[in-house]
Nucleic acid binder design. Structure first.
Length: 290
DNA sequence: AATTATAACAACCGCAGCGTG
DNA sequence: ACACGCTGCGGTTGTTATAAT
């Protein structure tokens, strides 16, 4: 079985990517497409392992990525999907075009988690924290079949979550997750909910914002926007009568034009304009706020 | 102005599933 | 059937920027 190891790690670089490395990787993929990641670093002349190249491309260099903070509606969608799927970041990301699993995971850990806790909601169970333990105890009693009782609450939680999560992963189109319904009801009843942070807009309250570009309704949504999701189809997510804000739907061409890494300088050649990461993020943020 | 704490996010690590020889 | 490599995923860490003292 003469396959070579994935990467021998000897002489391979780690840490932040340089402008030159980015350029090499982008040039290579734009020229050759995404092929065997193991071969990419050698062919592109990059001293990284294929895994690192793949991550850099998928999380940062891909031209269809949106930048900047998640919009309110994106956050709400993340919360809902998380209540159904748990930490299945890739599945959640597949429902947010232009967002990566890493980005969503980071946003969850740094923003959403705190907001939910601040609101008294357990970000893991999506239930009110005050009643979480008691609630689990009751549920545990109802679901004793096949359950090995843990000695502490922690292990019990895991036992309680798993069957439901597994079922939901098999069929996300199930009418409504109990967890999410409970969270949603709680959010609606919480006047103290930080509306300036994550407003929970009801479906009928969501309107497509006025924008200079064409507006999209749910009926005009291009199905291709969701083609990246093998396991979840957009229409399976239950959002009756919901009209999505534009940013969620569009893998905008605007995004490509705003993407400053690559620009066509004529005769088919691409110029690479590397900004440092924070400069770029700042400029994206600024653009998105305009 | 300097130092410390916190936030944000890019990148790494290890594991699991799947495909291939 | 088995061993191994490749890829993708999720958890975690490291680095940098910003805010607070």
């Amino acid at each position: 079985m003469g396959r070579q190891p994935c990467c021998d790690k000897v002489g391979l670089k780690k840490g932040p990517w340089t402008a030159e490395e980015d350029k090499k990787l982008v040039d290579f993929i734009l020229t050759n497409g995404q092929c065997c990641w193991r071969a990419v670093p050698k062919l592109a002349g990059i001293l990284r392992c294929g895994k690192s190249c793949r991550l850099r491309w998928t999380n940062y260099l891909r031209p269809d990525l949106k930048r900047g903070l998640l919009s309110e509606s994106e956050e709400k969608l993340v919360i809902e999907l998380h209540s159904r799927l748990g930490n299945k970041w890739s599945k959640i990301a597949s429902q947010l075009p232009g967002r990566t699993d890493n980005e969503i995971k980071n946003h969850w850990n740094t923003h959403i988690k705190k907001k939910l806790r601040k609101m008294g909601i357990d970000p893991i169970t999506h239930k009110p924290i005050s009643s979480t333990d008691e609630h689990h105890l009751q549920e545990g009693q109802q679901q004793q079949v096949g359950v090995v009782a843990g000695e502490d609450g922690r292990s019990e939680n895991i036992i309680l979550q798993c069957p439901q999560r597994q079922e939901e992963e098999k069929s996300v189109s199930v009418s409504s997750s109990f967890d999410f319904v409970e969270t949603d009801i709680f959010l609606q009843k919480s006047p103290g909910f930080c509306t300036d942070e994550v407003p929970m807009i009801q479906p009928h309250e969501i309107t497509v914002p006025c924008a200079s570009t064409a507006s999209y309704s749910s009926t005009s949504l291009p199905s291709s926007c969701f083609s990246s999701s093998p396991s979840l189809k957009a229409e399976e997510i239950q959002f009756p009568c919901m009209e999505w804000p534009e940013p969620i739907y569009l893998c905008e061409m605007d995004d490509f034009s705003q993407w400053d890494l690559i620009s066509n300088v004529g005769d088919g050649k691409l110029a690479f304009d590397h900004l440092n990461q924070h400069q770029r993020t700042a400029s994206w943020n600024q653009e998105s706020s305009n």
